[in-house]
């Protein structure tokens, strides 16, 4: 059986510059802060980050932005991070804004083996520019392609050694379906329990999509 528990150092060695990273969290809630801090200890950068938002300049994904490690951010919202907006206006950071529900569903599609989704969101707005449209049962939909990435960096509450995951309240957000959509899924966990230590009913993400576990501060 493959051992999934790795150290922070082993983690950062696996992440190459220029990688595409799915990062969980909603304004920092549910973002793997230890993993981000570990990346920042290296000189790696040029990442494409796909996440709900870029949080705040000194928090979560915002730290990657502030230290100029990100070349492209694919997100739904940057309103809480003036640094993201500044770098976007300067031209040093490419920002692609996607409606939040469309972003979530494109990532879910990527992880669930689908080529994309059909959504009414964005029809008749600048979001539809350049995208194919389909009429189904008299209603118009945008065709939005699936999103996949090299790595998914997640924050979970509990895991067993197999990698089954549970989540703390609203820290769940994008972490669940992002786990499916990457070549390598890495979860920072607050608590490690023995195999059999999780009630199957409380498992939210099954171990089959989790490649590596890293124990957080509270483990």
């Amino acid at each position: 059986m493959k051992k999934k528990l790795i150290t922070l150092h082993e983690f950062s060695e696996r992440i190459p510059s220029g990688a595409t990273l799915l990062i969980g969290g909603f304004l920092g809630d549910g973002t793997p802060d230890l993993l981000i801090d570990e990346i920042l200890k290296t000189d790696k950068g040029g990442f494409t980050v796909i996440a709900n938002d870029t949080a705040f300049p000194d928090q979560g994904i915002g730290k990657l932005i502030s230290q100029k490690r990100v070349k492209k951010a694919i997100v739904s919202h940057i309103g809480t991070n003036p640094e993201t907006q500044k770098q976007m206006i300067e031209g040093s950071l490419i920002v692609e804004l996607i409606p939040q529900g469309t972003l979530a569903e494109r990532i879910r599609a990527g992880g669930f083996g689908l080529g994309g989704i059909l959504t009414p969101t964005g029809i008749g707005t600048i979001v539809e520019n350049g995208k194919p449209k389909l009429h189904i049962d008299g209603k118009e939909y945008l065709v939005e392609s699936a999103i996949k990435a090299d790595f998914a960096l997640l924050k979970a509450k509990k895991a067993d050694f197999y990698g089954n995951l549970t989540f703390a309240y609203t820290a769940r957000n994008f972490n669940t379906f992002m786990a499916f959509a990457a070549n390598c899924t890495i979860a920072e966990i607050d608590e490690l329990v023995p195999i059999g230590g999780l009630n199957p009913e409380e498992v939210v993400v099954p171990h089959a999509v989790v490649d590596c576990l890293i124990r957080g501060n509270r483990s």
């Binding site: 938002d53 919202h77 940057i78 409606p99 979001v127």
Partner: peptide, 14 residues
Amino acid sequence: MIPGMGGAMDLVTG
């Protein structure tokens, strides 16, 4: 001002 649409487009559509 370009904060991004967040969930607004989905909310108004759905």
